[in-house]
Design a protein around this nucleic acid. Structure first.
Lengths: 192, 192
DNA sequence: CAGTTATTTCAGAAATTTCTGAAATTTACA
DNA sequence: TGTAAATTTCAGAAATTTCTGAAATAACTG
């Protein structure tokens, strides 16, 4: 690996973290490298920087593109493919959330729903279904929130984050606001 | 594997999902089994239900206990250890969030901070640092929000979720409320 | 205490994942 | 077109992770 020390530290850390996330080490490193690179890189530059095989780079890039975390760029008068990461970190966060939801949360919800449709054949199954219903309910609440919030522009999202828990305090004392808020949409009772 | 079909479907799905999360298949299955079980199970019951070795069960349980996702229980007049999952799904969510933060987010923040302290030795390093600073800022905003929100009791947390994006809409039109909320900068601020 | 049961540890086997080099395919342009 | 550069594919090698059985340890019981 042939990188400025400071970049190397970052790339190595991302590699480690990658493994914890089911993403593999190399994929994590490639992403990290592109993320901090001042300009798009071509595959051979990645090979050079990380000291891994050309074919491994090809597969890692394909994976990252599937996640929409890395974009193909073309440089004029150069046949090679170049790659970058989107540069708005908030956008990156959105993409990550969306893709993880698609791959992990949605399939889980659909398995749960499927199971919950079935007729329990024993007390054990009845209890299991009740537990799964709790889990299903929780995930549904979370994804409803997510679906609602993901459409906010960055500035508003930042505002919402900054506000944090204070929101509920406000609501408690000022519940006319609640009813005002509820006029638009009706989800779970927000009453104290 | 020797389980009611409906439970088996759930256990298998959790096993699959486990792999995607860096958690291994067996650990996921053990968790799922305990989650839906009407009463605590001992290690041999898990061996029996999942058809895996006793030693594998022992290691999986140890892992789950380290994550605080599984608790040791004792049944009167029985020397064996029994295991359950906490039954409040919201509590489970909190635990999961807390542990993942501890293992993944905190170390990343500290690596980033460390790197950002250093003097860049080139233009490439300078740019890399700027990118890392953006990432650091984003993570910090998210963790601040999380630290704020995690202390809410379940009912309030549910309220906040139900409200979703509507919060920011409210703020826009009624920004005197913002300043009211902001008067107690830190969390927990009890309001008149 | 001796005997019994329960649990953990750990070396190596088995399974899975990752990575590579060579070959095949695609692409661009002369 | 033909050809050379760029990229992808893929079979198997290498590395890593997971799992097991046997042995060690610990915990209880009579």
């Amino acid at each position: 690996m042939n990188l400025p020390p400071l970049v190397q530290a970052f790339v190595l850390h991302f590699g480690e973290m990658g493994s914890r996330w089911g993403i593999n080490r190399t994929v994590g490193q490639v992403y990290a490298l592109l993320y901090v690179s001042p300009q798009p890189l071509c595959a051979d530059e990645i090979v050079e920087a990380l000291g891994i095989s050309r074919s491994n780079v090809s597969m890692s890039l394909r994976e990252l593109q599937a996640w929409k975390l890395v974009l193909l760029k073309h440089v004029p008068n150069d046949r090679r493919d170049f790659f970058t990461t989107p540069d708005d970190v908030w956008q990156i966060l959105r993409t990550l959330a969306e893709e993880r939801k698609k791959r992990e949360v949605d399939p889980t919800l659909s398995v749960l729903r499927e199971i919950l449709m079935q007729q329990p054949a024993s007390e054990a199954e009845r209890h299991a279904q009740a537990r799964m219903a709790e889990m299903h309910g929780l995930i549904e609440q979370l994804t409803n929130w997510y679906d609602d919030v993901k459409q906010l522009e960055t500035a508003r999202l930042a505002t919402l984050l900054a506000l944090g828990a204070k929101v509920t305090k406000l609501l408690e004392t000022k519940d006319k606001i609640v009813s005002l808020g509820r006029s638009k949409r009706s989800r779970q009772g927000a009453e104290p």
